[in-house]
Design a protein around this nucleic acid. Structure first.
Length: 273
DNA sequence: AGTGTATCCTGCAGGC
DNA sequence: TGCCTGCAGGATACAC
């Protein structure tokens, strides 16, 4: 479910409730969400305070004292919900991990499909993890020249290329498809077939669509909820994603759905070449 | 190296 | 009502 804009919205929503909180105890209800045993996971977190909440690509990161990093990949249906003491939330339908905070509150990781993963990292593993990811598209290191060069090195379809987190961090299927539409580029074209103008247009389209989606607090197709239980408002502003057979807003041609790389892509066959 | 496929898992919508 | 199929914001592992 969550791509960069949804992860960013979650991070912003967690900062207030979690900054300064301390983890008293951790209860793992779904061990398959972890890369280690529940016992070790809980031990690594016990007594640690949250210094900050941030994001790397689609990952939500709790920076803990020690130091340590709790890195949460939300998969398709993951969500994080802070609860006040004795509060019950209707969002918590499939709790996977409960972090009990000093003072009686909780942070619940909820995940219907359990494709998410929670990992505790040290300085070294966190640096390695972050280093494997590409630049942040809304950050200062997303350079057009690097982007163009990186595209030129691959002949994989551009939509699939955009989903590779080593190339650009945080782009998922929705925003990859939407960026291709805005750039007027057929998502099936090989990355190295884009000319410099097209590469620049796509670069700009990625930044634009992600920025607009962050301001709309993300896209809720079905499951996504921010920490307050609210959905995102970007759904109605999607121009092709999920709009098979509906008219393209620019030319009126019905939107096509094509499947490759195991995922659906949507495009206007007239506007995207 | 890239690409197509399958896998993890659950829920929901649509067709019959 | 019920059963079946297909589909879903992600990430990986495999054979070719």
């Amino acid at each position: 479910m969550p791509e960069l804009p949804e992860a960013e919205t979650i991070v912003r929503g967690l900062r207030g409730p979690l900054t300064g909180a301390r983890i008293a105890r951790t209860r793992v209800l779904r061990p398959d969400l972890l890369d280690t045993s529940p016992g070790r996971f809980a031990r690594l977190l016990k007594g640690r305070a949250v210094l900050g909440v941030s994001r790397r690509g689609k990952n939500v990161v709790l920076e803990l004292d020690g130091p340590a990093w709790l890195v949460v990949n939300l998969g398709m249906t993951g969500g994080l919900f802070p609860l006040a003491p004795r509060e019950r939330s209707r969002q918590v339908t499939h709790p996977g991990v409960r972090f009990y905070l000093e003072g009686g509150g909780q942070l619940v990781y909820n995940d219907v499909r359990r494709f998410g993963q929670l990992r505790v990292m040290n300085a070294e593993s966190w640096a390695a993890f972050s280093g494997r990811l590409g630049p942040e598209p809304l950050g200062p290191d997303f350079h057009r020249a690097d982007f163009r060069g990186s595209l030129a090195a691959s002949r994989t379809p551009i939509r699939s290329w955009l989903l590779d987190q080593r190339k650009v961090a945080g782009v998922g299927n929705i925003y990859a498809v939407e960026a291709c539409y805005r750039a007027g580029i057929d998502p099936r074209r090989p990355a190295n077939a884009l000319n410099p103008d097209e590469a620049e247009t796509l670069h700009r389209a990625i930044v634009q669509v992600l920025d607009e989606a962050v301001r709309a607090r993300g896209t809720t197709l079905r499951d996504y909820r921010d920490p307050e239980g609210e959905g995102g408002a970007f759904g109605p502003r999607l121009r092709v994603y999920g709009r098979e057979d509906l008219p393209c807003g620019r030319c009126g041609t019905p939107v096509d759905r094509v499947v490759f790389g195991n995922r659906s892509a949507f495009l206007c066959p007239t506007c995207q070449t």
